[in-house]
Simulated scan of single mutants.
Amino acid sequence: MSLLEISLLSLFIAQVLKIFTTLPPDFSRIIGSGGMPSSHASFVSTLSTTVGLNYGFDSDLFAIVTVFSLIIIYDAGGVRRAVGEQANVLNHLIKHLELGKLGKEKKIIKKDLRELIGHTPFEVLAGTILGVFIALINYYYL
């Protein structure tokens, strides 16, 4: 498979696995961000590993892909997770304000802010391991 095809397959597999990491299984997770495993980490680690296997782990191309992969992984586990935590605090604050001082039917926002945006370190690690595993299977067996 091509670099793009195997990377997209890795992304798809990670998204499908998210359905079954909640009880009961939640089929809406297939299109959402956040959760276990990180599809961002899986996607870019498959790409980086495949480039390393095909072009050498000392190649300039591997270095470039790895730098961008690390940025994406950091963003998935760090920045986006912080945004989700802030959304959680804001949702609680807004509910408190609506119940306390604004009266019965007053709504500050129409719907809650999305809280499941980023990943825990474990979710990122699981996605990374999944991505490397898929790349190795593709390289050695497909």
Rank of each mutant, 00 (worst) to 15 (best):
G56D: 03
N88G: 12
G52Q: 12
F43H: 08
T21R: 10
L47K: 11
R80C: 15
F27H: 04
S33Q: 05
Y55V: 07
V83P: 04
L17I: 08
V67D: 00
T66K: 08
S39T: 05
Q15H: 14
H40F: 08
T49P: 03
S39W: 02
V65W: 01
L23I: 07
T49M: 13
S33K: 14
V65Y: 01
I19N: 12
F68V: 00
L61P: 01
G56S: 12
R80F: 11
G34H: 03
D75Y: 13
Y74Q: 12
S48C: 13
T21M: 14
G77C: 05
R29C: 01
V89K: 12
A63I: 10
P25S: 14
P37V: 03
N88T: 11
N88W: 13
L53M: 15
S59L: 01
G84H: 03
S39G: 07
I72Y: 00
I72C: 00
S48G: 11
G34K: 05
S38E: 10
S69Q: 00
S28W: 08
V65I: 12
M36T: 05
D58S: 15
V79R: 15
A63P: 07
R81I: 06
S69Y: 02
S33W: 13
S69T: 00
V79H: 06
N88A: 11
L23T: 07
L70D: 00
F68G: 05
P37Q: 06
N54P: 02
V51D: 10
N88D: 15
N88R: 14
K18W: 08
T50Q: 05
S28A: 04
S28E: 06
P37K: 11
T21E: 13
K18P: 02
V65D: 08
L53N: 14
T50K: 10
P24V: 08
L70V: 00
S38C: 04
V65T: 09
V65H: 06
G78P: 03
V79G: 14
D75K: 13
P24F: 10
T22V: 15
E85T: 02
P37R: 15
F27A: 11
V89H: 11
I72E: 01
F62K: 02
A14F: 04
G78K: 15
G56V: 07
P37A: 04
I71M: 03
S45D: 02
A82N: 15
L17H: 11
Q15G: 13
D60W: 06
V65S: 09
V83E: 11
V79I: 14
A76Y: 00
G78C: 09
K18E: 03
I73M: 15
T50L: 08
V51W: 11
V44A: 07
